[in-house]
């Protein structure tokens, strides 16, 4: 699966969990750039990603993410 496909699917997951309208992520996007992406729903987003791809993250992995690019790399490494 390529990066563009993962980002497209992440947009849908973010829109569903955050429920703040359309989300357009890029590799450089950070939590500050997306309205409603806060610590309270970050874990829910991570769980939705785990369910979608049938993968598991560790706490250290999710705490070391700096932007969507890191998240995409993490997902690609596991699927």
């Amino acid at each position: 699966m390529n990066t563009a496909q993962i980002i497209h699917e992440l947009n849908l997951i973010f829109e569903d969990v955050i429920d703040e309208g359309k989300v357009e992520l890029s590799l450089d996007t950070t939590a500050k750039d997306v309205e409603g992406w806060d610590s309270l729903n970050h874990v829910q987003i991570i769980y939705a990603i785990e369910q979608k791809y049938g993968i598991k993250f560790s706490l250290t992995e999710i705490q070391s993410l700096n932007n969507v690019g890191d998240l995409v790399n993490l997902i690609s490494g596991k699927i």
Binding site: S39, L40, V43, Q44, I46, Y47, L59, I62
Partner: peptide
Amino acid sequence: IQDYLFTPISFKRRNWGKFGIFYAA
């Protein structure tokens, strides 16, 4: 508290959905 308590607890209980976050809070 968020980094060392809330996030680890909510991550551990992430399969509880929103109640996992309620519990962590």
